[in-house]
C-alpha cells in the first residue's frame, strides 16, 4: 500500500533530475558550442518547450507504457538498452548472493553457537575486515593474483552464459568473489547476532530440557526464528548490490546495468541515465515488497499481527 506513494515520489525525483541540470538542459547536454537549431531540435525532442507538469505527465505516461525515451547517443530505446544490460547484472547479483550466503550462514551459525571461542573471534574479525575492504580494490587484487600472476582466469571481459557457459563462469568468478566476500560479512554479522538472540529464548531451553540434540535444537528451532532479520538483511544486500556493482562492472568490463549508467554519464546521455536510475529505484521497491512477502511466509506471527521475538 505504502509502495504506491513511494513509486510516485520516485518518478517525481527522477524526472526532476533532468531539470536540476544548471541552465537549459538541452544546452547542457549538447554543450556550449551547439548551434541554436540543434538546441531547438533537442528541446522539441525532449518536450522541454511544454509546461513542467505537462512534461512530467507525458514522461510518466511513456514510462507506464514502457517507453523510457531514446538514447541521446544512438537513439536506441533506453528500455531496450536496459534489457540488454540486465542479464549480466542479474547473473552477477545472483552469484554474489549465493557466495555470500554460502559463507555467511555456516560462519554465522558457528560463531553464534560457540560465542567468545576462537571460531567466534575469527568470524567476527573476518566480518569486520570484509565490511571494511573496498570491493573494487579487492577485485583489483584478485585480478593481480589470479589473472596476472597465475593466469587462471581472464582479467576482464564477459561472455553470455548461453554462448559459452565455461567462459562465462571463468569471467564472472572474480567479480562474484570480490563482491560476495564483502556482502557475506554483512550477512554473517546479522546471522550471528540474530541466532545468538534466538538461542537465549525460553523455548530453546525447553528444547534442551526435552533432551533434544544440539544440532536439532539449532537447525530446527533456533535457526528458523533467527532467519527473519537475516531475510531482511538479504533484501538490503541484494538491493545494495544494484548500486555496488556499478564499480565492479567497470573494473571487470562487464557490460551490465551499472556500466550502462557510468558510460551514459560520460557520454552526457542524460535520458539513459534518467531511465536507468528510475529502473534501479523501482527494482529496489520491488525487492522490498518481495522481502515483506517472504516475512509472511517465514513467520506467520507477522501475518496475524503478533509481535515477533
Amino acid at each position: 500500500m505504502l509502495a504506491i506513494p513511494v513509486v510516485f515520489l520516485v518518478t517525481l525525483m527522477v524526472f526532476s533530475l533532468m531539470h536540476m541540470l544548471p541552465g537549459d538542459p538541452a544546452t547542457v547536454i549538447l554543450g556550449q558550442e551547439a548551434t541554436p537549431e540543434a538546441v531547438a531540435a533537442l528541446r522539441a525532442e525532449l518536450g522541454l518547450n511544454k509546461p513542467l507538469p505537462v512534461q512530467y505527465f507525458d514522461w510518466l505516461s511513456g514510462v507506464l507504457h514502457g517507453n523510457l525515451g531514446n538514447s541521446l547517443v544512438d537513439h536506441t530505446p533506453v528500455a531496450q538498452l536496459i534489457m540488454e544490460r540486465l542479464p549480466a547484472t542479474i547473473e552477477l547479483t545472483l552469484g554474489t548472493f549465493i557466495v555470500a550466503t554460502l559463507i555467511a550462514v555456516p560462519a554465522g551459525i558457528l560463531s553464534a553457537v560457540r560465542p567468545r571461542s576462537l571460531t567466534d573471534y575469527s568470524g567476527t574479525l573476518f566480518a569486520l575486515c570484509g565490511m571494511s575492504v573496498p570491493h573494487f580494490w579487492l577485485g583489483m587484487m584478485l585480478i593481480i593474483l589470479f589473472a596476472v600472476k597465475l593466469g587462471w582466469v581472464p582479467a576482464s571481459g564477459y561472455v553470455p552464459f548461453f554462448d559459452d557457459p565455461l567462459g562465462n563462469l571463468s569471467a564472472m568468478i572474480l567479480p562474484i568473489i570480490a563482491t560476495g566476500l564483502r556482502e557475506s560479512a554483512v550477512l554473517m554479522r546479522m546471522m550471528r547476532s540474530s541466532l545468538l538472540e534466538a538461542l537465549q529464548a525460553d523455548y530453546i531451553r525447553t528444547a534442551y530440557a526435552k533432551g533434544l540434540k544440539e544440532r536439532l535444537v539449532i537447525l530446527r528451532h533456533a535457526l528458523k526464528n533467527a532467519l527473519v532479520p537475516v531475510v531482511t538483511t538479504s533484501g538490503l544486500v541484494v538491493a545494495g548490490l544494484l548500486g555496488g556493482l556499478v564499480i565492479t562492472e567497470s573494473i571487470f568490463s562487464i557490460p551490465g546495468f551499472g556500466k550502462l549508467i557510468v558510460d551514459s554519464i560520460f557520454n552526457r546521455d542524460f535520458v539513459t541515465v534518467q531511465g536507468a536510475v528510475l529502473v534501479s529505484a523501482l527494482l529496489i521497491v520491488l525487492i522490498n515488497l518481495l522481502v515483506d512477502i517472504l516475512h509472511f511466509i517465514i513467520d506467520p506471527r507477522i501475518k496475524s499481527g503478533k509481535e515477533v521475538g
Partner: peptide, 14 residues
C-alpha cells in the same frame, strides 16, 4: 522512503 529506494551509489552518481 523514496530517497532510500535509490541505491546510494547510483543516487550519488546521478
Amino acid at each position: 522512503d523514496a530517497m532510500q529506494a535509490f541505491p546510494s551509489l547510483i543516487l550519488a552518481l546521478a
